[in-house]
Design a protein around this nucleic acid. Structure first.
Lengths: 249, 249
DNA sequence: CGGGTTCTTGACTAGTTTCAAGCAAAGTGG
DNA sequence: CCACTTTGCTTGAAACTAGTCAAGAACCCG
């Protein structure tokens, strides 16, 4: 399920994420601190649960590789996917700061995570205010994505919803270097997409087929191909603000 | 519309919010800093807009009195209310940290706000890590509420949705001292409730009538009376975690 | 006492869900 | 290596929840 690998631990100095210009650089002192903050790496396989709703978490993670999602489940089994997780994202902050996690986090593909200890979080605040600020940036960004998701679920039609997530996810993936322009690996089932959009599986499928029939996109073998970006954006009423280089921990 | 009142400015030492045991106390140094961080007070009248979607904000606010809401609007006019705002809540952080605000904030009742300057935010991080931590707490708490709202919009039926917001809002109001147990002022129109729940006005109204007919609740004159909490909770599948004393700025 | 919101209700419509069934692809075990 | 099972995708038809239209009642403001 999970495998902690201390041996092939990456040195933060050569963190692969930092090569991507979308992520802001660290100064040497910050880097030194991050190194001490990091307690290890963990690799989780596709399908496994990283954090569980209702529990508290002793660790915070930064995603280095792979995709996952945050979700929330009702007692009767209804599930809602809250947001997708990709490289550079921080997970477990809610569980570290509040008493317990209101959501679960699952890996959709194999993932590689950096592990930070909850106990050391306070030293981040007290010694590195710039990193604390980045944490706040990350939390605000997550809030912005949730806001967007809320208007999608509350006010957009099925067609708009599907088009909207696809373009948004594509742009996020391109930004973080997780996918090339135009094509992206999409390691999710239609059931999961339905659970994201607040739609039934059947209706999600029919909507996808309609978009494909229009030549707007294609989706086979867990890969999404954006064939007509303009069409998708128009349907979705999409409007994505490009971000300045973003922080990560 | 708005009225800046420097004269009757409250001294943070006797901040009315702090009397409420739900809010955690400050130590003297923190208090001193907050005093210097605060640049004034503002009172806004019911119905006015405090922050506007798409703009950036030069200020951050803490709510002292009154209720409001955060919302997001599409170009064609469809509106989604993202969350309600009540005493102790912080607004404008997203606009201060990111480039621009993705949402608007409106006052539903007359409100009294403490104003903090965006420029001084950095000094909060560098000099008072404990307050920076509180900021993160607040952001995490907001995220938790948005998560809950997402599963409401995505997976709950109309009846469940209505019952759920009512109980949740009631509990939040009681917690912050904005309302006594069982009854709460509800300064929102049914149209706004509909925009919160992702439902049409008509259907929201019919659902409210059904709940009233069951004797679960009553709502007249912008006041909500919770008549049968158990019934509402059961319908809503409600499950609210009581919080330890919460921070505020 | 108008005139404008806000609430309420009924009738009709549309979008989405549920049910059902078949098929393809990918595992599983003998 | 081939039945057997499981999981995911696809499609049509029926049922239902929620949306739209319309119009009157109640309430609020000046």
């Amino acid at each position: 399920m999970r495998h902690i690998s201390h041996r092939d631990r990456h040195d933060c100095t050569h963190c692969p994420l930092r090569k991507n210009p979308a992520f802001r650089p660290f100064d040497p002192e910050q880097l030194e601190f991050i190194k001490s903050f990091k307690v290890g790496e963990i690799s989780v396989s596709a399908g496994s649960t990283i954090l569980t709703q209702g529990q508290s978490s002793e660790a915070i993670y930064t995603v280095m590789k792979g995709w996952g999602f945050r979700s929330k489940t009702l007692d009767d089994g209804r599930e809602q996917i809250l947001n997708f997780i990709m490289p550079g994202d921080l997970i477990g902050l809610q569980g570290a700061v509040l008493e317990e996690m209101g959501h679960s986090v699952d890996a959709s593909s194999d993932m590689l995570l950096c592990v930070f200890e909850r106990q050391k979080l306070w030293s981040l605040f007290s010694k590195f205010p710039s990193l604390a600020y980045d944490l706040t940036w990350l939390a605000s960004r997550e809030e912005q994505l949730l806001d967007e998701h809320l208007i999608t679920l509350g006010r957009r039609s099925a067609m708009e919803r599907v088009a909207h997530v696809l373009v948004l996810l594509h742009d996020r993936a391109v930004e973080t270097g997780a996918a090339p322009e135009g094509t992206m690996p999409f390691p999710f089932s239609q059931q999961q997409l339905a659970n994201t959009l607040g739609l039934s599986l059947v209706h999600t499928n029919k909507t996808l087929r309609k978009l494909a029939a229009r030549g707007a996109m294609a989706w086979r073998d867990r890969t999404f191909v954006m064939m007509d970006r303009n069409a998708l954006c128009e349907i979705a009423k999409y409007d994505y603000t490009v971000l300045k280089p973003r922080p990560f921990i």
